[in-house]
Amino acid sequence: MTTIRPVFGKSDKRAFIDIAYRLNADDPHWVPPLRSEVEGQITPEKNGWFSHAEAQLFLAERDGRVVGRVSAHVDTLALTMPPEQGFGPGCGQWGMLEAADGEAAAALIAAAEDWLRGRGLSRALGPISLSIWEQPGLLTEGFDHAPTVMMGHNKPEQQSWIEAAGYRPAKELVTYELDITHEFPPLVNRIIAAGEKNPRIRIRRVDKSRFGEEAAIILGILNDAWSDNWGFVPLTPPEIDDVGKKLKPIVFEDLIRIAEVDGEPVAFMITLPDLNEAIGKFGGRLLPFNWAKLLWWLRAPHARTMRVPLMGVLKRLQASRLASQLAFMMIEYIRRDAIAKFGSTRGEIGWILDDNQGMIAIADTIESRINRRYTIYEKALDA
């Protein structure tokens, strides 16, 4: 019989982290995350998301052995968002699901739902781990290759377990991949060339010596550009501080561009070398010697894959030809540097909402293809 209990204390937290490594050890495409990163994610003092959210972690046990885990959480900012954008009043979430079998999964999801009901919530979205900005959605397509940095990966069985609990798809997210060693189609190159002749446009690298100022510019554009998107919750100052600390070691000036028009920053593109290529064999641990290997890699990363986790252009420009032109220019400039300075051959863009026609059009025009699909599920919670 499976029993569920809340996580209390350091030993429970350690068990909550450890179970993912045990259950996924036989999956050749699962990349063990750094344990320190997971610990930071679930610790309120280390994750700015908790400044506006509350979470409860649960463990599943059977015959004295941990057989699964789940998180249940309510985000007070998400409750204030328009319901047509995914969250809204009465909406809670759960995530970080790991289970040895369907019985454990069903019990864990039921425990998360009970916790949400206890806080007066009437609808559940999941999996979301923990913030929509971290690892949203269940992988439902693309199990045959490893995820890139900051992307989730799970076993295929989870889909049937979640759907058996009464959940139905609410939104799909996709990632696109492309061979970046090939030049883009002639039409794209003509658009880029025209932009280069326009004296109003400037595409610049970020200045890492002014990291705080540059991050503020990018996140200001992001909160404006994404504000109408499904699932949007604005990033708060504590989260911005934490994201900056987390990303700074893998931020390289050649891989991040800010687009200015008449001197005003109006768009950005962030690209990250695929850290998973470096940490894949670490088993989630930096000690005793993996920290030195990681530092050596970070000095001059040679990464096959570059991931574009975030792009954005101010809302007032999004329906204009200028928006696409700026996007193509940033993509092309970063593509060149990724090949020349990092030895990269492959790009991954996403995640992208499956109804984001602007980004889908850009992805199609540069001849990329969908390689992974994630699904966020929803369910009405009866009283």
Rank of each mutant, 00 (worst) to 15 (best):
T181G: 12
F184V: 05
L187C: 00
L187E: 09
R190K: 06
A194M: 05
I201A: 09
I203L: 11
V206R: 11
V206T: 15
V206K: 10
S209M: 09
S209N: 14
R210T: 11
G212S: 15
N223T: 05
D224V: 07
N229P: 07
W230D: 07
P234F: 15
P234G: 13
T236D: 06
T236P: 04
P238T: 12
E239T: 00
I240T: 06
D241F: 09
D242Q: 08
V243E: 01
G244M: 14
K246C: 02
K248L: 10
K248H: 13
I250S: 01
V251H: 00
F252A: 00
E253L: 08
D254Y: 05
R257W: 02
R257A: 08
R257T: 09
A259S: 07
E260V: 01
E260R: 06
G263C: 05
E264M: 10
P265V: 00
A267V: 12
T271A: 15
D274A: 05
N276W: 01
N276G: 09
E277R: 01
E277Q: 12
I279F: 06
G284A: 03
G284K: 09
L286S: 07
L286Q: 11
L287S: 09
P288N: 04
W297R: 10
A300C: 03
A300G: 09
P301Q: 02
A303G: 09
R304C: 04
R304D: 10
T305V: 14
V308Q: 05
M311N: 07
G312Q: 04
G312S: 07
G312I: 02
V313Q: 09
L314A: 10
L314G: 06
